[in-house]
Amino acid sequence: METPPLSSLYQQLILEHYRNPRNKAELEEKSVEIHMANPVCGDEVRLQLRIQDDQIEEAKFVGQGCSISQAAISMMTTLLQGCSLADAKILAECFTKMMQGDPDAAKDKRLKDLRVLQGVSKFPVRIKCALIGFDALQEALKTHAREETS
């Protein structure tokens, strides 16, 4: 399979987030923390959320990895500040669909800057990099829901 041009992968906004990640810090008061790692390539994230009344009050992360994984997590956390749990779930599902190549998902304006990562879906070995942050988010939402009901 022919690889599409690199310009569809390494967009300036991605490199900018990689070098200046937003919300990269430890959260002091957190309701949930999820550690996710890809043992194949070493990408790693600890996603921390403070949740109150079904709303994400604050989202921060600590992690390391390639430009794609770190930029995706950085962009994701900017959208999660003040986001309702229901909207966060929709965001995660929509982004995952975009990574699976769904063209409609890629047009969803709710993804905002995250849409620059659409090009990653054409690089099959890198899709996991883009998804690691949202995988952690989905895990965090599930964990939170379990803790709420117990």
Partner: peptide
Amino acid sequence: GDAHPHDISTILDS
């Protein structure tokens, strides 16, 4: 530099 090895590998693969 600050290019992650996976990014190096993707660029070389291209």
